[in-house]
Simulated scan of single mutants.
Amino acid sequence: MTAIINRIKKHNIIFSISHTKATYEETMIAIEAGATVVTHLFNAMRPLHHRNPGPFGILGQAGTKSRPYFGIIADGIHLHPTIVKIAYSAYLEGVFLVTDALSLAGLSRGTYEWTNGSRIVKKGSELTLEENGRIAGGFASLLDCVTNFLNWSGNSVPEAVNAVTSVPAKMLGMDKIKGSLEAGADADLLVLSERRNEDGLRTLRVDKVWKFGKLVLDPA
Rank of each mutant, 00 (worst) to 15 (best):
L107V: 12
L92S: 15
A74R: 04
A87G: 13
A101K: 03
I120A: 01
L102T: 12
K65N: 14
T64F: 08
I72A: 07
A87S: 12
T99W: 03
A105H: 12
G63M: 10
K65S: 15
Y69H: 12
D100P: 03
H78N: 00
S66D: 14
V84N: 02
S66Q: 13
S118L: 11
L127C: 02
I83E: 11
L127H: 02
E113R: 15
Y88H: 14
I73P: 04
D75E: 06
K65V: 12
R119V: 09
E93I: 06
G117M: 11
G94Q: 15
T128E: 02
S89E: 14
L102H: 01
A105I: 01
L104E: 04
I73R: 06
I120N: 00
K122Y: 02
I86H: 03
L97V: 04
E113S: 15
T115A: 09
T115M: 04
A87Y: 07
L92Y: 13
I73G: 03
D100C: 06
G110W: 08
Y88C: 04
I73H: 05
P68D: 11
P68L: 13
L92W: 13
I73M: 04
G63F: 09
S66V: 10
S125F: 03
S103K: 08
S125K: 12
Y112D: 09
S103D: 09
R67L: 14
P68A: 12
L79K: 00
L127V: 01
Y88T: 10
T82Y: 06
G110D: 09
L79E: 02
K85F: 06
L97Q: 06
G106T: 09
L102N: 00
T64R: 15
K85I: 03
V98P: 04
G71L: 07
K122D: 02
S125C: 03
G106H: 08
T99R: 04
D75P: 01
V98T: 12
Y91S: 15
T82G: 00
T128G: 00
G94P: 08
V121W: 04
Y88P: 05
